[in-house]
């Protein structure tokens, strides 16, 4: 079965979803990711969905639950590169994913994780409001 590769970059794990997500793949990803976070002690998880054109409620929930699981393992999840159409779809589905951090691109996502991991609260304070 296909697996989505998980790359380790310093304290962060990078997942780039480049294929159409089906439910099986999503569940496998959640399992793999959880295992990798525990094994590597990663502090951040970056999920790049910029090439994902179609999301359904299941994938939306999966992203949400990955974020929840990582939070339990003390890793911060950032979903990056969501397309406008996908964002609108998720909102219309009622999935605004309050527990997930988002960023426009991988660069900003990494900055977000870097900031939160290094404990530099100065830039972070703004997003709390």
């Amino acid at each position: 079965m296909d697996r989505i590769p998980i790359l380790k970059m310093g304290h962060a794990l990078l997942v780039t979803i480049q294929v159409d997500m089906h439910d099986q793949l999503a569940m496998a990803l959640e399992e793999d990711l959880t295992a990798r976070i525990a094994a590597t002690g990663a502090r951040g998880v970056l999920i790049d969905i910029s090439s994902l054109e179609i999301v359904d409620s299941f994938i939306g929930r999966m992203l949400d639950s990955i974020a929840a699981v990582s939070r339990l393992l003390d890793a911060r999840t950032v979903v990056v590169g969501m397309r406008p159409a996908v964002a609108i779809t998720l909102v219309e589905l009622g999935l605004s994913m309050p527990g997930v951090n988002t960023a426009l691109n991988v660069e900003r996502g990494l900055a977000l994780i870097g900031v939160s991991v290094s404990g530099d609260g100065e830039h972070d304070a703004g997003t709390e409001v």
């Binding site: 964002a87 998720l90 605004s96 994913m97 988002t102 960023a103 426009l104 997003t127």
Partner: peptide, 13 residues
């Protein structure tokens, strides 16, 4: 709120 939520999903506050 929908607009705000969608913008947030794109990574913008």
């Amino acid at each position: 709120l929908k607009t705000v939520a969608a913008a947030r999903l794109m990574g913008a506050d």
